[in-house]
């Protein structure tokens, strides 16, 4: 079976007053209908990865190399009409803050209908019917009236539902969700997560869900890829990664979770901060913060171990624990 999405050796470097090596040698495979959580802290390159997939980064300020294939099609060389039909047609995106990602001076209906008209070539009336149907599918109450609302007239959760309706209106085969619940209240977060999970099953699309919240990742995904400093440091099924984390960073993230912490007990945090990435990492990026680091970790990039099919860990010491088992 052809993977829905295959990323090989992706490098993203931002040029400008300061160079930033945002993504370094990232490889990732997603099968059709799969839900993957891309887990990592701020600045680890999660959002940049998503934007690269849609080729949304400013070309003048970015150096891209590597290979991205969507259903076998090379994405890196797409341009013009083909790129536009790929964006929003094959792959679409839900943004972090729906209050900023919707155009403030167009009605919700106009914004959904516009996408449908561009991709499906429908007339305005038919596109509006599709928009209405989508608002019903994302369970917005009195959808007919909402069509004529402007984004500022809706609540945050309602706006995110609109954003999801917009993203799914053209039945994409891959949905990119960039922390879609971060800007919302806790109760609304859960509703949106449940909605996304239901719609994923209903439409059978692949989903890449970017988040910094392990709880959210567990809730939504079948697989987890943990990112650190622009690289994937660990990947596996959600069960494998949560039950048996191999990378010290993943272990740290799990330990830093607030669940099951006794009142008054010291919270486990990972000491230090992520690297600035002004130079391309030539050794393990996590070594300075790693409690298990060896001198060898600071001298060369860590080897990538593959303890199982589609399971990998980029850590020198992961082999020891494997050998010990």
């Amino acid at each position: 079976m052809t993977p829905l999405l295959q990323i090989d050796n992706l490098d993203v470097r931002f040029k400008g007053a300061r160079t930033v090596h945002a993504i370094n040698d990232l490889s990732l495979t997603l099968m059709p209908g799969e839900t993957l959580a891309l887990l990592g802290e701020s600045g680890s390159g999660k959002s940049v990865t998503l934007k690269t997939l849609l080729r949304l980064l400013k070309e003048k300020r970015t150096d891209l190399s590597g290979d991205i294939r969507f259903d076998g099609t090379d994405i890196m060389t797409l341009s013009g009409r083909a790129l536009r039909s790929y964006r929003g047609g094959d792959v679409s995106m839900v943004f972090q803050d729906p209050g900023l990602a919707l155009d403030p001076v167009y009605t919700v209906g106009q914004q959904i209908a516009e996408t449908v008209m561009r991709h499906k070539g429908l007339s305005r009336e038919n596109a509006m019917d599709v928009a209405l149907d989508m608002l019903q599918r994302v369970r917005i109450p009195s959808p007919k009236r909402r069509l004529a609302n402007y984004p500022h007239e809706l609540s945050g959760g309602m706006r995110q539902r609109v954003m999801i309706a917009l993203a799914l209106a053209c039945r994409p085969r891959l949905l990119l969700a960039d922390e879609p619940t971060t800007a919302l209240d806790a109760t609304v977060q859960i509703q949106i997560l449940l909605l996304l999970r239901e719609l994923q099953r209903e439409f059978g699309m692949g989903v890449i869900f970017v988040t910094h919240d392990i709880g959210v990742a567990v809730e939504i995904s079948e697989r987890i890829a943990v990112m650190y400093a622009g690289q994937i440091v660990e990947e596996g099924t959600t069960h494998e990664v949560i039950r048996n984390p191999r990378h010290p960073y993943t272990q740290g993230l799990l330990a830093a979770n607030l669940h099951d912490v006794a009142r008054g007990a010291r919270l486990d945090a990972i000491p230090g901060a992520p690297p600035s990435l002004e130079v391309r990492p030539d050794s393990c990026s996590f070594a300075p913060r790693c409690p298990m680091a060896l001198p060898a970790c600071r001298q060369a990039l860590p080897p990538v171990l593959t303890p199982g099919p589609r399971r990998r860990v980029a850590c020198l010491r992961a082999g020891e624990t494997l050998a010990a088992e």
Binding site: G88, F95, A101, L102, D103, V105, Y106, E114, H119
Partner: peptide
């Protein structure tokens, strides 16, 4: 430089369409 412009490109609009949105704003 606002987010919604990125979102407009992400939904597959052409530069002309995006500029129309910008002009309206």
């Amino acid at each position: 430089s606002m987010d919604f412009v990125t979102a407009l490109y992400a939904k597959g609009l052409s530069r002309g369409d995006v500029l129309r949105h910008v002009a309206r704003n």
